[in-house]
Design a protein around this nucleic acid. Sequence first.
DNA 1: ATGAAAGCGCTAACAA
DNA 2: TTGTTAGCGCTTTCAT
Lengths: 337, 337
Amino acid sequence: MKSSRPTIRDVARLAGVSHQTVSRVINKNAGVTPETREIVEAAILELNYHPSAIARSMARGETRTLACISPNLTDYTFASIIEGAESEARSQGYFMLSSSAADPKSFGELVEELAGHRRVDGLIVINPYMDERYTHIPKNFPLVFVGAYSHDEKICSVSLDDVQVAYDATSYLLACGHKKVAMLTGPMEEDCSRDRSEGYRRALQENSLPVVDAFVFEGDWTATSGQKMIQALAHSGEMPSAIFAQNDRMAMGVLRAVRDLNLNVPDDIAVIGVDDMPLSSYFDPPLSTMRQDMPLIGQEAVRMMFNIIKKKKQPERHLKLPAELVVRQSTKVTDTL
Amino acid sequence: MKSSRPTIRDVARLAGVSHQTVSRVINKNAGVTPETREIVEAAILELNYHPSAIARSMARGETRTLACISPNLTDYTFASIIEGAESEARSQGYFMLSSSAADPKSFGELVEELAGHRRVDGLIVINPYMDERYTHIPKNFPLVFVGAYSHDEKICSVSLDDVQVAYDATSYLLACGHKKVAMLTGPMEEDCSRDRSEGYRRALQENSLPVVDAFVFEGDWTATSGQKMIQALAHSGEMPSAIFAQNDRMAMGVLRAVRDLNLNVPDDIAVIGVDDMPLSSYFDPPLSTMRQDMPLIGQEAVRMMFNIIKKKKQPERHLKLPAELVVRQSTKVTDTL
DNA sequence: ATGAAAGCGCTAACAA
DNA sequence: TTGTTAGCGCTTTCAT
């Protein structure tokens, strides 16, 4: 009576075949007669045998596991991307190991243990920073960036077309009749914030409108930073007629602060965000926003990863996905400005 | 010139020692003279050697990886629990593999591959359903339930004290002066919803108030279901003066629907939720709620897991965490009822 | 303090 | 079609 779990050899012994034949059966390889297969399968059932994932990884030289490093796991955007990625990976028989790394140090350790120790077959990095963090990634290790595209052209990436999204959002505000459009950005160290700022500027310039510094605020993606922006604006006395917030959460803070000022959205100030998180249509008023399909971004990132891992031809290194304008009640066409 | 990565033996050869000595060095084991250690470390650096996680798992018989199965990865509550769990696991040198399983079938497959194949050392299940899903979990496989506690007493669990939370929320509403308190539940197939309903009933009964069926609605945790409840209530003509929503998202839907009816919160209808999600304080009006510390729940689940894995004495099998009342502007003391 | 030998459970290459 | 032989890269046990 062995106490530990049965191995491929135990099954082989019971079935009266070699362990290799058992291996063929569990891997559904050709070259086994139906009769032999049946005998082996019966033995597997009888022993309640399950192959060892570790031993397989060992012998195959691959883990069939991908890792995803994200600034955190709770932001709706990140979580949605991860969910999309995980689901796509699973559908291909791969697992996803997700970790959060807030600072460069923990990021480095993570990379070391995940990629360096070959705990996973590939690495997806959400919201990568373009700094020295990547020095520990082994050369030629499968790597895909998500949410910002790499300045190092050789690194694959999937992201929203941030410049375009911001351009569209701002243009829409302009088309509504606004002349004084302010912007609330994410942290400017993130490429995503910079690209969205660029789109905003472009839209303004194309309409021969100036980019006024007093109307550009740097936030940190939180609702609180949106609230602070409005308070600062109120304090300055100079109010815009519309605000482009680079994400919905900050837009929510803006909505709240405008309410606190007894001003009306969209009559006094129009607001548009980016993301279309599930709660956005429940904001007061329901928020106009640029909807992005985050699960799709995760899915595409994993597809790209498989292209790299399986050494298929790799047509595009950089994929940029579009966003869609969703008009709700936080914006409206105005002729009175 | 070998093209593949260096092994422990390559290091040993370069350092002029046995591979065992190298093993001792990388594991920081005792029994190596400082001089030998230095030589080995130099060799490791020179070859840019990194130990193989798979080979270690193979030899040790453990993966140092935990898995977390959740209905999804995007719900703020789940994501927060996972984040807390992942962070605690990492701090102990473990990794966390998180997967979502919406239906019993995919849940079963996941369990089979994660636990059956020993891809991980332990399994954390968020919002477990008490059905036949667990038949595939190997006997004695380390298992911790989160968010609902197991009716099978032998399975460890960490959860919010749901009965108490609901009791407290309802009692608070009662203490505010309300007599007609309605409730919006999660899906009644979830233990969590049932327990919270129980707490609601208990509070009512202790105050000699009847539990009226027309005031209890079953939702599905989404804001939309909150909205529907109010619409149904409005249609019926019989309005409560306060609503206990079993989570904040549904409360948000309630807030929105009440607004659409041109009624005021908290004057016409008071609302309290559960969770205290980050956006709750930005709702209109800011939402009173029962705050739960979700990262802590995840953290405690992992701690419990380590107690099981490391076969320490296991003082408590079931941990119930408290929630804290947070009063904002969606409720207020009323004497006029 | 160090080294040699055995084995973890599988897959892959080759033989029969 | 099936079996045999080698590893995969470590850790563990036992010698020295």
